[in-house]
């Protein structure tokens, strides 16, 4: 590693539980403030000031919860799988803990995406649920999260559990492109993607700008809850090490 200085020092330090605890401790307040500001601003903007949809009226406003949570549920899965791969390949303990912390957060966000989708579907499509490709693949995502969590729960040895769950989440990664392209491959009821990197959104600016704020807010919120869980997990797994004892006695 002597020759490659292109990665900053703190990036390597993240691999050590102790430094990771310190760094996330410093980042946490910033993310918390950003999450609260973005979510409050985004919600007020979306619910009170964004113009109503010409077809759906005000019912479309649930999109401002539904779309960010759907995006985040997939990002969280990718993070879980990537962290699992990092843990498998480089045997970094912190990566295992990140993957472990991602699973319950991702599962609850996937539930939120499905629930808001159902509530939105009732007035728009006339039914709570349709067996459409996008909905089914999201449901599979939730099942995959549950499988990973069940695997963690079934194994007593933390290292083995982390490796096994990483393999499972890497296998489940095939579902992510299916979710992403389900609305393009199958011509179904669910509308196409709201945001793409290459094209302008089909919505007017005053509608998608609050959505962007909400998406960013959700990511910040995810950062906060991930860091909180990660810090708990670090303390729990490193409870026998000296620095944790010092930390606890100094409180």
């Amino acid at each position: 590693m002597a020759g490659s200085n292109w990665l900053p020092r703190w990036f390597y330090q993240l691999a050590s539980p102790r430094w990771c605890y310190d760094i996330t401790g410093k980042l946490l307040p910033g993310f918390l403030i950003a999450a609260v500001l973005l979510l409050v601003a985004g919600l007020v903007w979306a619910l009170a000031f964004a113009p109503p949809d010409y077809q759906q009226g005000n019912s479309f406003r649930i999109m401002y919860i539904h779309v960010p949570s759907a995006i985040l549920a997939q990002s969280c899965y990718m993070l879980m799988a990537i962290a699992g791969a990092v843990g498998l390949i480089w045997k970094i303990k912190v990566a295992d803990m990140v993957a472990f912390a991602c699973a319950p957060i991702g599962a609850s966000i996937a539930v939120m995406a499905l629930a808001t989708g159902a509530i939105w579907g009732k007035p728009t499509w006339g039914s709570w649920w349709v067996w459409d490709a996008r909905l089914t693949s999201m449901l599979i995502l939730l099942f995959l999260y549950m499988g990973v969590m069940a695997l963690y729960a079934a194994m007593d040895n933390e290292t083995t559990a982390a490796k096994a769950a990483s393999v499972l989440s890497l296998v489940g990664l095939v579902n992510i492109p299916i979710i992403k392209y389900s609305v393009e491959w199958w011509n179904t009821l669910h509308q196409p993607a709201t945001f793409t990197l290459t094209e302008k959104p089909a919505m007017p600016v005053e509608m998608w700008l609050p959505l962007l704020v909400m998406v960013l807010g959700f990511y910040c919120f995810f950062g906060v809850s991930l860091m909180l869980r990660l810090r708990n997990e670090i303390i729990r797994r490193e409870r026998r090490s000296g620095w944790v004892r010092e930390l606890i006695t100094s409180r």
Binding site: F143, M146, A150, L151, A154, L168, V171, G172
Partner: peptide, 10 residues
Amino acid sequence: VLISLLVLPL
């Protein structure tokens, strides 16, 4: 039961 939970989604 665990094996069903892991495999069925796939």
